[in-house]
């Protein structure tokens, strides 16, 4: 089954690694790509990392981006504009719960639109 992919964007690499662990407990298939920290692994966000993560997470059914504070959303928006992938959307939901809900839904084969609707309803 092809699943919608999830990109986790945080200022901290540890945060996104932790969220991925939480999701992997319940789902092993959904593509999850991480963009945590700067290109040097320090606290911050980085456009190139986000673009690479979008590529990693895209298996043909679209990619949803989740972000934390400050510049994370701005960098996510730039990455979406710069990336050549078509079905890429930024989810307006809290990073941990939002990504968890999205991954569970992606795991049961829901489309991007369906997942976005669920997120919209819940958050």
């Amino acid at each position: 089954m092809v699943n919608v992919g999830v990109v986790l964007i945080s200022h901290s690499p540890k945060i996104v690694e932790g969220i991925k662990e939480i999701i992997r407990q319940v789902n092993k298939d959904v593509p999850i790509a991480l963009a945590g920290g700067t290109d040097e692994g320090e606290i911050g966000t980085n456009i190139d990392k986000i673009i690479t993560a979008i590529e990693e997470a895209d298996s043909g059914k679209g990619v949803l981006l989740f972000f934390d504070i400050g510049s994370a959303k701005m960098n996510a928006e730039m990455a979406v504009e710069m990336s050549e992938h078509e079905q890429v959307k930024i989810a307006e939901a809290p990073l941990v719960e939002g990504a968890y809900v999205a991954a569970v839904e992606a795991g049961i084969g829901k489309s991007m639109e369906e997942i976005l609707q669920t997120l919209h309803k819940n958050f």
Binding site: T38, E42, T45, N46, I47, D48, S71, M74, N75, M78
Partner: peptide, 15 residues
Amino acid sequence: LMSKVGGASGPLFGT
């Protein structure tokens, strides 16, 4: 600037 500054000022000065 966009890829190296990081933070909010990277995309902003880059833009």
